[in-house]
Every structure is written in structure tokens, then in C-alpha cells.
Design a protein around this nucleic acid. Structure first.
Lengths: 233, 233
DNA sequence: CACCCGCTATGACGCCGGTCATAGGGAGCC
DNA sequence: GGCTCCCTATGACCGGCGTCATAGCGGGTG
């Protein structure tokens, strides 16, 4: 991919808009593309934050491994989204691992030019602050949901959220344009594979969900929304 | 309180260090002190973010009310800490309510001068970004804990965290220099009052905790730490 | 082809912790 | 003093969901 393409790609993300062309080109020149197969780790929890990442294609999950062996998925990121950025500007180790959920290409920019950019361009810092703020709110949503909602509600809410961010409208319903294992969904909602499988089986049977070659289709978004809002049935 | 005292107080918080004296004095001149009795709401979820707050004395909890009636405490803030700041710089309504847990005095600064300050001083935005980043990490910790740890572990971890931030070493152990109801502790850890009371009763009996006129004393921090790390017993 | 691995699927069992009920004590107030 | 809140405390019950076990299937690999 040419440096021009990389620059155009970077500009799509809000954190880089508003920066002069030459700055973006400078970053693009330092950027490295990297392909990862499904399940590969891009970095591990505790690694020094040497790179600022963007998802080029595919999906990346930000994961914590607990000592009991259970994993927790903190975020799921698709094309165009930034990760590892908070650790870079804070100059701290990555607080969680990043793992590809499917064959994925990422773009990585070394930490130093990003930090230097932050010194020169307040607009970049401001956009980063806004991005972190959005993530903080979404993390608070997760806390709330884990603290008060039963598993079924949390799962429905997770599907609705994914559909809103990346769903493709079809006449059967909204399709999630990528595959997520039930294990990943379980790790995103703080439950177990078995429970997730049971609930999905029921939803598939009852016409709330359909399967399109491994992709989930939300065939009755209305009812799923009600479940996500905590209304039984 | 004089404007000088207010300025000195503001300077104690990292988000205002590094700002020229005249800027701080400008904020101090616009600041208003406000006293709240225990349980009073300082603002409600959804209110327009008109003020940037700091805790002068006492404690403030950031709370979400779920439709099932259960509350979730997202953060507990003591003297010197900022709240409502993220909503102000994002120009969005407060995403949760703020409530005094005891008689509390807050300092509030109108949103506009804070936003204007952010335009003029990148250092302020940078400090805000770092603060939000720290809170994001702590929110991720909460998510992880709620997703994988049993109630007893979460409660022990909450006590250890509070002790680290505000504990006063005494010869009996570490004392938390303020009173929190079991209900608040329950809301911080995603459980119920009854369960919290049961566990605390046991800990009081077994010498892990003591009661000093309503204040909790961590008399066996070692064992509590082990519980917080998930080791049974 | 046979093998293995990752994933989905389903049943049986049991426990953690939530729900409901009841009681008692301390602080503030008329 | 007596009343009302708020908080702490404890027992009984039971259900959601985690744990363990087993099985089947599809796809990639030697």
C-alpha cells in the first residue's frame, strides 16, 4: 500500500482530522502494516507501549486474562478504530492484550512520532481526550450492565450494540458482517460459553436470530431491544 | 474563603498545575462554593453539564440508577478530586448523578471559562486526557472484577483500593477516615446490602475488620489482600 | 484418508448469592 | 418521651447460572 493510501486511511479517523497534511504524511511514512491470522496476539498485557495501532481490516479484541483462566473482552474494534493509543500517550505498558478475532490487518505507528505530534498539535490531544471519554462512558455502561442485568439482558444488549456499530441492513434483518465465537460473546458479557450457547440456541429457535454462514442475523431486533432493556420476553 | 485560598486549592489538582497564575486566579474568581448534606444530589444524570466540580471536603459518589431500582456506584471521590469534568469538555449531559455520601463541600466552576481555558492551554487538555485515561483503566478493572470475581473478592478489593487511596495507618491497622454505608459498598461492588452485611459481619468476627465509631479499620490487610486476589480464605 | 482441534450443542447437578421477611438500635425531631 | 427514619443484622428459601461431562461436526493438516 502506498504512503498516500495510508495517509488517506489515517485521515478517516477523528483523532487525525484537523491535522496538516504534512504531519499525516509524516506518520504515514513511519507506519508499518502487519497481518495477523485469527487468534494471534498483536501485543500482550504488560508489554511496553511501543506502537500506536489502527485496525485496517478485520477485528481486534482487547482482552484481559484473569488468574482463574477466564478471559474478559473489554472492547471489540473494527476497521478504522484506534487501539493501544491510550497507553502510548500515557507512556505506560498496555493494560490488556490485543488479539485478532479473524484474519486481520493492522497499521502501527511508532510511539515517538505520535508523542511528538501530541506536543505540537493540541487538536490531536483534544481528539484523543474525546475518544478516551467516549470509551470511559462505554466502560461505565458495561459496569452498570454487569452489576444489575441478568445474562440474557447483557447478551441482547451486546448484539444490539454490535448491530448499531457495524450491522448491515438486509431484508431478513441486520447482519453482523463478521464472525464472533460464542466464547468471545461470553467473554464480552461476563458469562460462560455454555450459557451463551443455550441462550443463542433458544433465540435461533424462536426467530430472534438467524445464522448466515457463520454470521449472525438479528431477525427480530424489536424483541431483542426489549430484552436488552430488561423486559422479560 | 478567599479567592487566594481557592486558587491554591485548585493548584493542588494535577489538571491545573502548569497553568499560569492569572488563569488559575480567573477560574478561582468564577468559582462557587456549595455545601451539601449527606445524601443530597449535586447533579442528576442527564442534567446539562453546566459546571466543573471539585470536592473540597467530604465525599461524592457518581451513581447510576437502574430501572430495576438498583443503584451502581461508578466512582467514589474525595477531597481534591474532579468530577463532572469529562461531561464539560465533551459538552454533553452528565452521564450519571453525583451524590454526597456525607456532609460535603464542593467547588464549582462554570463550564464556559473551563472550555475557554482548554482552548488556550493544551497542557490543561493533556492533563484532562491523562486523568480520563486513569479512570478508563480503573473502569476496566471494575469490568474485569465484576465479570470474573465472586462477591467476597470484589468487596475485599474495594476495601483495599479505598485504603490505598485514603487510608490512615494506625497501630490497629488502616482506618478509612470516613463512613460508607454497607449499601454504598454494595452498590460499588454490584451486590446487595444483605450480602455485604453478611460478609462484613463475618470479617468483623474473624478479625479482618474492626469498627471505630462508624469508620472501618482494616485490621488484617494481609488476609484481605489475599481475598482480593481471589485466594479462598 | 484419518486425525486433531476448535467450535457448537445439551443434559445433570449444585451452589452462590439474590429475595423476602423480621427485628433491633441509634440519631434527629416534634 | 415517643415517633420516624436510616442503618445494621440474621434467618429461610430458591432460582439463575456456573461447572462438569459427553457428543457431534466441519475444516485444516500431515
Amino acid at each position: 500500500m502506498s504512503a498516500k493510501d495510508v495517509a488517506a486511511f489515517l485521515r478517516q479517523n477523528a483523532v487525525f482530522t484537523g491535522l496538516p497534511a504534512r504531519e499525516i504524511e509524516g506518520l504515514a511514512a513511519a507506519a508499518v502494516e502487519e497481518a495477523h491470522p485469527a487468534r494471534a496476539y498483536i501485543f500482550m498485557e504488560g508489554d511496553p507501549a511501543g506502537w500506536f495501532y489502527l485496525v485496517r481490516s478485520g477485528h481486534v479484541k482487547i482482552v484481559r486474562h484473569s488468574k482463574t483462566g477466564k478471559d474478559v473482552v473489554l472492547e471489540l474494534l473494527g476497521a478504522g478504530e484506534v487501539f493501544g493509543g491510550v497507553a502510548v500517550i500515557e507512556k505506560r505498558p498496555y493494560p490488556a492484550a490485543a488479539q485478532a478475532t479473524e484474519p486481520t490487518v493492522v497499521l502501527k505507528i511508532p510511539a515517538e512520532p505520535v508523542i511528538a505530534l501530541a506536543e505540537r498539535h493540541p487538536a490531536f490531544v483534544k481528539e484523543m481526550a474525546l475518544m478516551i471519554g467516549r470509551r470511559l462512558r462505554s466502560a461505565h455502561d458495561s459496569v452498570t450492565s454487569l452489576a444489575v442485568d441478568p445474562v440474557e439482558t447483557r447478551l441482547a444488549a451486546a448484539l444490539i450494540r454490535l448491530a448499531e456499530r457495524e450491522g448491515a441492513r438486509g431484508r431478513e434483518g441486520v447482519t453482523l458482517p463478521f464472525h464472533l465465537t460464542r466464547q468471545s460473546l461470553a467473554d464480552m458479557t461476563g458469562t460462560t460459553v455454555e450459557t451463551t450457547i443455550r441462550i443463542f440456541s433458544r433465540w435461533l429457535k424462536n426467530g430472534l436470530l438467524a445464522d448466515d454462514g457463520g454470521r449472525l442475523v438479528l431477525t427480530d431486533r424489536e424483541r431483542l431491544s426489549r430484552l436488552a432493556d430488561g423486559e422479560a420476553q
